[in-house]
Amino acid sequence: MLEYDPLACLPSSEELPDSDDIPVDNELQDLIPTLLKAVLAMAWADRMDWFFGVDMGIYYDPNQPPIVPDGFLSLGVERYFDENLRRSYVLWEEKQVPILVLEVVSQTYRGEYTSKKEQYAMLGALYYVVYNPMRSRKPRLEVYKLVNNEYQSLLGNPIWLPEVGLAIGMEQGTYQGITREWLYWYNEQGQRLLTPEERTQQAEKRAQVMAERLRSLGVDPDTLV
């Protein structure tokens, strides 16, 4: 008896474009999600069940073009380390809807508060995060949670996301030499997770302190193996 596998008829992630080829409007649309991904890579270095995509296509229907958020987080999926990594995110392969999607608003609105919000609700993404750095009278950071197929606004900064196990928020900081307001991850106590650059600086300071202590004891740290 022949067995029919409907998934075998669908294109794979290797065959599908990784994005919609629409260029980002400004650097922040790349830098902000890249920073969030870099922080997770350090904080969750031992976890093998997550993926953070940046400007990557999410394929939910083989007959429809992909949805391409500026960033998205999926949990419960395999973390790839091979040379090809993920070329796109295909729901009929991954079997996990992203738990969080992120849009960074530029001077040109692209439906972040309307059509994209509806798309992500249809997709079933639990959290929808919108960051608009140009706002002054309205909140720059908005976080929504999907409740009964509709997004409800969450208040605070940072905002705790229990299903993720982290909070997301904004504050002033420096990344790649650029000092401005950035989005960061926080733990349950509200402490911001360090960036890779900050971790390196912290390690260098500890090494300097240790070297000074050794010198005060008459030991040259440069001679230690």
Rank of each mutant, 00 (worst) to 15 (best):
Y184G: 02
Y184W: 15
Y184S: 09
W185F: 08
W185E: 01
W185R: 00
W185C: 00
Y186T: 02
Y186A: 03
N187S: 06
N187Q: 06
N187C: 08
N187P: 04
Q189L: 13
Q189R: 14
Q189S: 13
Q189E: 06
G190I: 00
G190F: 14
G190P: 07
G190S: 07
Q191K: 04
Q191W: 06
R192K: 11
R192S: 07
L193V: 03
L193H: 09
L194R: 06
T195G: 02
T195C: 01
E197P: 07
E198Q: 14
E198R: 12
R199C: 11
T200W: 13
T200P: 01
Q201N: 08
Q201E: 15
Q201T: 00
Q202R: 14
Q202M: 08
A203E: 03
A203G: 01
E204W: 11
E204P: 09
K205I: 15
K205D: 01
R206A: 02
R206N: 02
A207P: 03
A207Q: 10
V209T: 12
V209Q: 07
V209C: 05
M210A: 13
M210F: 11
M210D: 07
M210R: 13
A211R: 05
R213Q: 07
R213G: 08
L214W: 09
L214I: 14
R215P: 13
R215A: 09
R215E: 15
